[in-house]
Design a protein around this nucleic acid. Structure first.
Length: 309
DNA sequence: CTCTAACTCAATG
DNA sequence: CATTGAGTTAGAG
């Protein structure tokens, strides 16, 4: 029997919460972040049910984005014109569907106030970095510069770049090719594999037709995106050697997330690796070679000193 | 049946 | 588009 797909759901409501739908959309994108409009598109493209009553469900979805700490709003880079911010998954929220249900989580992902404050500080700093690295007039990236924090906050020693300023491959997502045994690379602490849903959950495995993998209407225009659909369930077979981990992209030990169970490793949320979690994603903030040290005085970053350079 | 996540409606910025 | 609140619905255990 076919797994759930566009076809099987038809006009029926798919068994996913807005949260999981949104997470799927975000997770399916190369940068692991999407503007609202793209999230809408992801959903309407593959679930006919959501082509109706758009006002209602889109409002609900927006409510979810704001309400749930698992989603974080990343300021749009000035050289990326468009409306609205990008939405990303909180790095610590990858395992929020640990019970295997994409309908209802056991517990809501909530940040404590201190964590939220910290995150907001980081985001504020990020927004300020935008002003530093991009022309305020043209929005274009400015020339190579030292990260502003270098000449700002105390102890220079703290600024050893955690991420080499190298230009890394755009998409950190790595189709590990077929089959799952929840293989996670390296730091995959949660060598769990144990108490996990038997079912193989994955974005595309759930929503893509079993056969007919070819691109249809929804592939148009949008690049790598749908390449996830290449993954299908197959008889177990040896995994090919893992490609080397791109330098600077640390991996989180979330082996058991449903989205990973089709053979994807979860890189640290590439869009926004805040200081507490890693650093800034080089593809989104190419000029930012080092992250802001945890505990820095964020009020000073992006201040007057930034603008004088 | 209970608990609470998820959804809806809607006001407000 | 984003945030927030209040009231309702419904899934999981």
């Amino acid at each position: 029997m076919p797994r759930p797909s566009r076809e099987t759901y038809g006009d029926q409501k798919p068994p996913y919460s807005y949260i999981s739908l949104t997470a799927m959309a975000i997770w399916s994108s190369p940068e692991k972040m999407l503007p609202l409009s793209e999230i809408y598109r992801f959903i309407t493209d593959r679930f006919p049910y959501y082509r109706k009553n758009t006002q209602r469900w889109q409002n609900s979805l927006r409510h979810n984005l704001s309400f749930n700490d698992c989603f974080i709003k990343v300021p749009r880079r000035p050289d990326r014109p468009g409306k609205g911010a990008y939405w990303a998954l909180h790095p610590q929220a990858f395992d929020m569907f640990e019970n295997g249900s994409l309908l209802r989580r056991r517990k809501r992902f909530k940040l404590h106030k201190s964590e939220k404050d910290l995150l907001n500080e980081e985001l504020a700093a990020l927004a300020n970095l935008n002003r530093f690295f991009f022309s305020s007039t043209t929005g274009a990236p400015v020339q190579q510069m030292e990260p502003p924090c270098n000449n700002m906050v105390g102890d220079p020693g703290m600024f050893a770049p955690r991420i080499p300023p190298t230009n890394m491959a755009a998409s950190p997502i790595r189709p590990l090719s077929p089959m799952l045994p929840t293989t996670c690379i390296s730091g995959s602490a949660s060598a769990d594999s144990g108490a996990r849903p038997k079912r193989s959950f994955t974005i595309e495995s759930l929503i893509t037709p079993d056969k007919e993998s070819t691109s249809d209407s929804l592939d148009h225009g949008h690049r790598e995106d749908i390449r996830l659909s290449q993954v299908t369930e197959q008889p177990t077979r040896a995994l090919p050697p893992l490609p080397p981990i791109a330098a600077g992209i640390p991996f989180l030990p979330y082996g058991g997330h449903p989205f990973t169970q089709m053979g994807y490793d979860l890189p640290v949320n590439p869009l926004l690796m805040m200081a507490p979690f890693g650093g800034l994603h080089p593809s989104y903030y190419p000029n930012v070679g080092s992250s802001i040290p945890h505990g820095s005085d964020m009020s000073r970053i992006g201040g007057s000193a930034l603008r004088t350079v």
